[in-house]
């Protein structure tokens, strides 16, 4: 069971160039900011947007290959799609919505209704078979959408922001249920989201998409441990730098030098956790090798910690206690000294 997709297409100002492979053993989440091309990529896999270049292959069968002029239309691809706002047919009952795919593929009414009923049973929706979609709650609608997509036994399940249409109070519960249902599905599962929490909770592997290209991919732990873009660094909440490493010193692309305890060489990323950044009013005494002068630009409280944005030769965010903010009068801004231990700078190849 495998999906191999190389999607190249231009849609308005978006230039999408994504290569992605997925197997049946994992749930893959495509994570990225709004406008990165996630939904377009999903639509391309579904055959709703034609490729300019590339190829889509599922289990060795080519769905689309512009060069060879192969194009399997959407209705003949063995896929199931859960759309962002579900797009349940408002004129059909819940049962008819779920049976729609089977009926469209030629299954008789009786058989289709029976299998649709089984799916409603599995998703705790049996009581709503005759209801209209607009009388259901958001979570119920999401389950109907899932049942509708799964009822045709697709080999590829695509979910577009499956939780975005829900309010915060029901999202956690629905996410738990969704994880359970995804686990029981045997095909390839690909979901798209802009919410890192959702991606991490639901997926075994993250693919980060920014401005139409993949910037990073790996398990949630790998991705969060080693961000490779400012977007991911911001999501994780760490300071990310890039530069050339040589002899324990990192020359940052944005200027400035950073001493590192790593023997890495060449083009590298470096991550500094805000908690590892020390802020002083006076030049610190002692051992830290990375000391520089900066200017406190703003303070934000996050839980029992305060995040201070400091600009200088090397700009970064420091995380300190609220007590320190008061003691150092950081809220007033002004000149500060920054120190970071070389051992706190994590370095990995770019």
């Amino acid at each position: 069971m495998s999906l191999a997709a190389e999607v190249g297409l231009q849609l308005g100002r978006l230039r999408l160039d994504v290569s992605l492979a997925a197997g049946g053993a994992e749930v893959v989440a495509l994570l990225g900011p709004n406008g990165a091309g996630k939904t377009t990529f999903l639509r391309a896999l579904a055959g709703l947007v034609p490729l300019d270049a590339g190829r889509v292959e599922l289990d060795g069968v080519t769905f689309e290959d512009p060069v060879r002029r192969v194009f399997v239309p959407t209705e003949r691809r063995p896929i199931g799609v859960v759309f962002q706002d579900y797009l349940l047919f408002p004129h059909l009952s819940v049962l008819d919505n779920v049976a729609f795919g089977l009926r469209s593929r030629g299954t008789g009414r009786k058989t289709a209704d029976g299998r649709a009923r089984d799916w409603l049973e599995r998703l705790d929706l049996a009581a709503y078979a005759t209801a209209r979609p607009d009388s259901l709650s958001g979570g119920q609608r999401q389950r109907v959408a899932l049942a509708r997509a799964l009822a045709t036994d697709p080999r590829l399940l695509l979910l577009d922001e499956p939780l975005a249409a829900l309010d915060a109070s029901t999202r956690a519960e629905v996410r738990r249920d969704l994880k359970r249902h995804l686990a029981s599905f045997e095909g390839i599962r690909l979901l798209v989201t802009h919410d890192p929490l959702e991606a991490i909770a639901l997926a075994d592997r993250l693919v980060v998409l920014e401005s139409g290209t993949v910037t990073q991919s790996g398990t949630p732990a790998e991705v969060t441990a080693r961000p490779r873009s400012q977007y991911v660094a911001d999501l994780v909440g760490v300071n990310l730098f890039r530069g050339a490493a040589a002899g324990g010193v990192l020359s940052l692309a944005g200027g400035g030098l950073l001493a590192v305890a790593d023997a890495a060489a060449g083009d590298v990323f470096a991550v500094v956790h805000p908690r590892a950044v020390a802020v002083h009013r006076q030049r610190p005494e002692g051992s830290p090798r990375n000391v520089w002068r900066g200017r406190a630009e703003g303070v934000e409280l996050a839980g029992d910690r305060a995040r201070v944005r400091v600009s200088g030769e090397i700009s970064l965010v420091a995380e300190v206690t609220p007590a320190a903010v008061a003691e150092l009068a950081l809220a007033a801004g002004g000149e500060v000294w920054i120190s970071v231990k070389a051992t706190e700078v994590a370095v990995y190849p770019a």
């Binding site: 639509r43 209705e75 469209s104």
Partner: peptide, 26 residues
């Protein structure tokens, strides 16, 4: 909203099924 028609197509509905069961009823 033509996305309803797209949803029907992802469920395996051909042109005529989409027209008869989705577009016209909507």
């Amino acid at each position: 909203d033509s996305r309803y028609e797209e949803a029907a197509r992802t469920l395996g509905a051909g042109r005529w099924t989409v027209l008869g069961r989705v577009t016209l009823p909507l």
